[in-house]
């Protein structure tokens, strides 16, 4: 296949500017059984994250007498891509991403509060369109907060890099596939610390740093959406007074995408105006 032109007349394939994020929607508390959960739609990505814990650590020999074991499992559904049916079962890529996301949360979760336990995070990519690992960890952070797990920050992630010679942020699938370099980043917004950082391709130092800076800047907007999603969850309860029991919270769950429009949700693409996680 001929490499498509990723940038035409200064605009990207979907019309975005270089530093513009795709529309993002985040909802907290979407599942019943999980201790905490969150759902994110990021462009066409659809990712569900759930947390169980702190709970008994199984297997017992993994337990740490001083702190909780924070572990994440990231998987993609076999129907997540526009192309072929994917594999059923774990993949090496999934294993690596699981480890990286585990490392992110091991840093921010105040694990010493729960010795000998495990905090299990599950990230399920239901539909993929580039940038699933950062979407996944962004949702996972919200799920952890939703579960009441003490953390030092609500972490989020954004990827940046180089496409068609330009530094840009947040790549869709084509940009990912045909771009020159992809740099996924996870940031602790409070401190600016980078908790996940990967890079591929061939870049000068200046290009790397410009990408990282662009990612950090964009991540602030993503963080606003995470906070809004968490606050919205409790504001609902406040307003209606009786928003059903625990069980009812999961009932609404994943927004549907039927017919191309999002039912009852208004999404505005970034920049400036961070895409609100609207109702």
């Amino acid at each position: 296949m001929d490499k498509p032109k990723l940038i035409v007349d200064g605009k990207r394939m979907d019309g975005r500017a270089m530093d513009e994020l795709r529309p993002i929607l985040i909802k907290a508390g979407v599942l019943n059984k999980a201790d905490g959960s969150a759902y994110i739609e990021w462009g066409k990505n659809k990712v569900l994250a759930a947390v169980y814990g702190p709970r008994e650590c199984i297997p017992k020999h993994d337990e740490n007498p001083y702190k909780a074991l924070v572990r994440c499992t990231y998987r993609m559904s076999p129907f997540c891509s526009l192309e072929e049916h994917g594999r059923r079962g774990p993949s090496r890529r999934g294993t690596e991403i699981s480890k990286l996301i585990s490392n992110v949360f091991d840093t921010v979760v105040m694990a010493e509060h729960f010795p000998k336990t495990a905090i299990d995070i599950f990230v399920e990519v239901l539909q993929a369109d580039g940038g699933t690992r950062v979407a996944g960890l962004t949702a996972a952070a919200v799920a952890l907060a939703d579960a009441g797990i003490p953390m030092k920050d609500v972490v989020c992630g954004v990827a940046a890099g180089k496409i068609d010679g330009e530094i840009a942020v947040d790549f869709g699938k084509y940009e990912d596939n045909f771009g020159e370099s992809d740099i996924p980043v996870a940031v602790s917004p409070r401190t600016g610390e980078l908790l996940l950082l990967q890079m591929d391709g061939m870049l000068t130092k200046d290009e790397v740093m410009r990408s990282v800076d662009m990612a950090i800047s964009a991540s602030m907007k993503v963080h606003e959406l995470q906070v809004a999603a968490l606050k919205e969850r409790y504001a609902e309860k406040e307003k209606s007074g009786a928003l059903g029991g625990e069980g009812d919270n999961g009932g609404g769950s994943l927004p549907s995408d039927a017919g191309g429009g999002r039912q009852g949700m208004a999404l505005q693409p970034v920049p400036g105006d961070a895409g609100e996680s609207a109702r």
């Binding site: 814990g53 729960f114 907060a145 003490p150 030092k152």
Partner: peptide, 23 residues
């Protein structure tokens, strides 16, 4: 800084967590 989702009263300095496991 807060470590959880909760209600914070600046006047009394009390923070009520909205979720969390029992210890």
């Amino acid at each position: 800084y807060s470590s959880v989702v909760g209600l914070f009263d600046d006047a009394s300095g009390k923070l009520i967590p909205l979720e969390g496991v029992y210890t």
